[in-house]
């Protein structure tokens, strides 16, 4: 997994609530047996109109926005457990998703792919969205070590599980940790009471 420490970037606003993983990557693109290429189809049915032409009103297609931070509305990533959603966002080039609330499974999937979910207050999210829309050049700084997200003269701290933070900073994943526990797992199996 790719390491994450700090990131300073412009951001793309996605001012929609309850963005579900079916929007992030529609089911018809889940037939691949590897992790490649999902970035091409991220938000497919919002990025392209019914005729398959680029929907220029959609923020990811708006030339004035760029960057590897996506700032989205409340309850981002709800719905299906498909990790393809995280692969698609990473494949498109995002390293950080900011929202006032994340769905559980998506959050775990993001962390397992070096994609940092930053949960901020509703007030901070609103300011952030307004700022990006008014001044798209605004640089946002995300510092995982300090657990802060800052822009211009505003800053907010965010929570992250300390174990997951260590994993992100060092690029570790859970498999390494679990394999180191093999003996304990076997002992548990031998002694389990249920």
């Amino acid at each position: 997994m790719e390491k994450f420490t700090t990131l300073t970037s412009r951001a793309i606003p996605l001012d929609i609530e309850n963005v579900d993983t079916d929007q992030i990557i529609p089911a018809r693109f889940l037939k691949a047996t590897d992790k490649k290429g999902f970035g091409d189809n991220v938000f497919r049915d919002w990025r392209f109109n019914k005729a398959g032409e680029l929907n220029i009103d959609f923020s990811l297609n708006n030339q004035k926005y760029s960057g590897s931070i996506l700032v989205a509305g409340d309850n981002f990533g709800c719905g299906s457990s498909r990790e393809h959603a995280a692969w698609a966002l990473v494949g498109y080039g995002f390293r950080v998703i900011v929202s006032s609330f994340f769905a559980d499974i998506f959050k775990g999937n993001a962390l397992n792919n070096g994609l940092l979910p930053v949960q901020v207050s509703e007030g901070f999210l609103k300011t952030l969205l307004e700022t990006i829309k008014t001044v798209p050049e605004t640089q946002i700084e995300v510092n995982l070590e300090a657990q802060t997200i800052s822009m211009s003269n505003k800053s907010e701290s965010f929570d992250i599980d300390s174990y997951k933070k260590t994993c992100m900073i060092n690029g570790y994943d859970d498999i390494d940790y679990l394999l180191s526990k093999k003996e304990q797992i076997e002992a548990f199996e031998a002694e389990k009471t249920y």
Binding site: S81, N109, D173, I175, L178, L179
Partner: peptide
């Protein structure tokens, strides 16, 4: 409960998952 594919790999490897109690 539902899990992502990274977790599918973890269960394959160890029959366990790392989780915070909900």
């Amino acid at each position: 409960f539902g899990i992502g594919t990274s977790q599918v790999a973890q269960v394959f490897a160890s029959q366990c998952l790392l989780l915070s109690k909900p």
